[in-house]
Design a protein around this nucleic acid. Sequence first.
DNA 1: AGACTTATACTCAACATCAGTATAATAGCG
DNA 2: CGCTATTATACTGATGTTGAGTATAAGTCT
Lengths: 312, 312
Amino acid sequence: MSAASKQGIAADLIALLVAVNSGDPRVLTIQDQHALPSGPFELAHRSLQSGLRAWVERQTRLPLGYVEQLYTFADRDRTGTVDQRVISISYLGLTREQAGSGRHETNWRSWYGYFPWEDHRLGAPPMEKMLRAGLAAWSEEAPDRAARRARQQRAAMLFGFDGHVWNEELVLQRYELLYEARLIPEALRGDDRPSARAATVVPGDSMILDHRRILATGIARLRAKIKYRPVVFELMPDTFTLLQLQRCVEALAGKLVHKPNFRRLIEQQELVEDTGETSQETGGRPAKLFRFRRAVLAERAIAGTKLPISGS
Amino acid sequence: MSAASKQGIAADLIALLVAVNSGDPRVLTIQDQHALPSGPFELAHRSLQSGLRAWVERQTRLPLGYVEQLYTFADRDRTGTVDQRVISISYLGLTREQAGSGRHETNWRSWYGYFPWEDHRLGAPPMEKMLRAGLAAWSEEAPDRAARRARQQRAAMLFGFDGHVWNEELVLQRYELLYEARLIPEALRGDDRPSARAATVVPGDSMILDHRRILATGIARLRAKIKYRPVVFELMPDTFTLLQLQRCVEALAGKLVHKPNFRRLIEQQELVEDTGETSQETGGRPAKLFRFRRAVLAERAIAGTKLPISGS
DNA sequence: AGACTTATACTCAACATCAGTATAATAGCG
DNA sequence: CGCTATTATACTGATGTTGAGTATAAGTCT
């Protein structure tokens, strides 16, 4: 049945590189642009992943620890340009923040600059009122009563309105809802009708093409993954205190966790080992410095680990 | 940084279509070939997923319920052909088994024909001895003692040797291990050295190109997914008994589940509703017939559901 | 010295999970 | 007709996990 199409479609590899610095999860963007770094997939590459690793490490000199494929997109209506057809294969990579020393100038930016509504560490963010109003208006536009109710329910579930619990993993679904509700600029591109001017546009920077969607996919994946795989450690320095580790998890998850339970789970599972040293920079009692037990990657890269992400 | 490569790379959409029939999970293959149906991605398609849906429904007339993207491959060394470079974007689709009424002749085949070692419903399968021996031999080939131990441990964890528990989700990792250990024919392709002839080749049909890897990816994804999303119901007829549902889950998971607990979880979560009818075909006491409550898709397409996959 | 901050250890209730057992309703058969 | 085999369905107790709270230790800052 196969017989691949011969009509020359181009393929781009897009890298979503994440680091966490002082309680701020950041993504690498191209200087002065809201764009993720990307490069073409070439015939010389042995595989997609090795192709990505190759040019990222060459161009940014970042030590790429963990890398995983995110998603492959080729939507006609969401690239902005209509004529050219590109398949975008996106990857998530975890690293530690360093000066971008590659040929191209790069920038680390907080991902909450693009998704301010995703940070619930200090409770519901201030713009939630605006979100709520915008979504309510969109619900009202539904043709009939049933559709109206369905929209309201969907919005409430995703954003935690009306007693629904906030689920931090639904980043992509929330983004897609806002897109559908035309509350973000990407949804209005290439539409010149006067009606295209949105009544409300929600705060948060947008990105070129569908890069903000890729970022949403990556945040969602990472928020899910830290709960059952020891990937947080890829973002930490060699030695760290348990509170630093907790702050890193909280930064990613966008919500606070219960300190005693967090410590219990980390220690129970023997994910870390004591270095014998302590950190004085806590402001209070000095904290033990720990080191990730790399051995667990071999022991249960597989079997699974658990991080507690619950209420504060 | 971007600027997509202009060098005409072809993209294929590959469909892994799954149905369950009388305790047997099956995949749609091309008649008389161990190959998954695939079609080219064309410029006319609005998106990758809609492209896939279009040609699958046109060519097979199957009602595609649930569809999700699996993975995108472009490995040079695993396609068999070296000259041509194709990006394979694979999708998983759930359906109900029907006569393939499309233009191309198709076949439903048990996926355990390709992965006999993945069926643990009756305990460890008979070929496990052979697997064990093959993997032990591979471990011995390691250069030093540490590497030898690492190989042994990896094999034991993945296959549940030496007191390790069998984790049914690690389908892909097991396949990749067997590939690395050269215990499956795909690993020997394009290698004409005499040493390429494997001492042992494990039972189980292989497929063209890297299709067996795609199948492994799909089985793994599905086994993980049924635990927290109500996707099993896409594979069930309109009404069914709880035991039928259980058998379906067991067929997918490749292991038996505890009946009382299974029933409790299904009913507790209100995933199904009573139709009032009963089935006489049980051979014993007639069983109530249930229907999937489609409403839960709206209620918590999102919030999550749980299926108990534990010991028998 | 005393207030404040952070680290670390321990306790308890609520809940989910695992596994086993008991009873009900049918079919098949001598 | 009554027995057994088979399946459906309901209940029970032990165990483990999770969420949340409290108490104490060891520093810094004023």
